[in-house]
Design a protein around this nucleic acid. Structure first.
Lengths: 186, 186
DNA sequence: AACCAGATATACAGACCTGTCTAATATACA
DNA sequence: TGTATATTAGACAGGTCTGTATATCTGGTT
């Protein structure tokens, strides 16, 4: 099936980008990993950049959907969802398909603001912040934007931490910090 | 002078790595930016990887020295230094030569644990955490490691934030979060 | 059975990459 | 002035990169 191919390419590219870096992963490597012909890749993605953009979009969508679902099923009120946030993030980081925050990695590898990859990263980063800020607003926090940004920064730092130090105690500290910040923001 | 050449190469490489990414910057570009011959670069740095490692080391050293000096001159007691930390980080981010946290960028571009660049990044990241943890310990914080990690994660998230959204309000939020966390950690 | 769209394998062009070699030039010092 | 040392310019080898072209094969439909 047609969408089957597309999915295989995206999956392979996502894994390779995560393990080796985006710029360090060649098209031939993606093709080999996906077990398809190079022409097929270029049929679905006219240029490597299109593939990069789609991988970032998909990984962000997946995380957003996972998180939204986890919070919806695990908590009723917005306030409880906010308190569940860091537990959910911890669970997500423990899943085997955890792969960092795509927009962070992409923005580091494509630092130029005029790059399409950088622009998309900035958009998705803002979306993520807005999502948490909305959560805080719905939970009745007095200064939702402040808390939203603080929690977002903490999550980004924790994800980086995890990948650098492989020390799972870090996330416990982040959770504790989130509790303190939420309580203080009232 | 000999050390002059070395310094010019490091300066040029640092700027290019920051603006375009590490893997996206070729040796020829560095040579042109530094205004030297390619052979000279390979005399001081036998391989590009040696240059990358030295750039990361130097940028981390510079930041560490700047921060240490700023805290020493701005505050007497360890407790006051801890309170000054985020103001200092804010000042550093406002300096023209601000270039992110080198070990974060490097670890994203070289994600494989067996890579020398990744290993150095992990070391420097741990050093940074230890520095803040020591600050917390000297300030008499009850759980210095917890607070140290929390502040480090917050700083890393704030630095990423700044580079992605260019919104300076983010750092104000981070400062506020740091105050809350320090107060709560007592 | 004949056809056809989609996928495959493979070679290729042209650009760029790292790292080396050589020959010419500049600089410092005796 | 003569000589060692450092730097330069530029070509080059060998490999990898993205993207294209071509020719073959496969599976489903009529």
């Amino acid at each position: 099936m047609a969408s089957d191919m597309r999915e295989r390419i995206l999956t392979a590219a996502s894994r390779l980008f995560q393990n080796n870096g985006i710029n360090a992963t060649g098209v031939d490597t993606i093709v080999a990993e996906a077990g398809i012909a190079k022409m097929t890749l270029y049929k679905y993605f006219p240029a490597k950049e299109d593939l990069i953009l789609e991988v970032i979009r998909q990984r962000s969508r997946e995380f957003g959907a996972w998180l939204g679902n986890r919070l919806d099923t695990g908590a009723r009120t917005p306030a409880k969802k906010l308190q569940l946030l860091f537990d959910a993030v911890e669970e997500w980081m423990a899943t085997p398909q955890f792969s960092g925050l795509a927009f962070i990695e992409a923005s580091v590898e494509f630092p130029q603001p005029e790059s399409a990859v950088n622009q998309l990263s900035a958009e998705l980063s803002a979306e993520f912040r807005d999502y948490i800020t909305d959560l805080a607003r719905q939970a009745g926090i007095r200064a939702p934007e402040a808390l939203g940004m603080q929690l977002a920064m903490l999550i980004e730092g924790a994800v980086l931490s995890q990948q650098l130090s492989k020390n799972s105690a870090d996330l416990e500290y982040a959770k504790q910090a989130a509790r303190v910040l939420i309580k203080s923001a009232g």
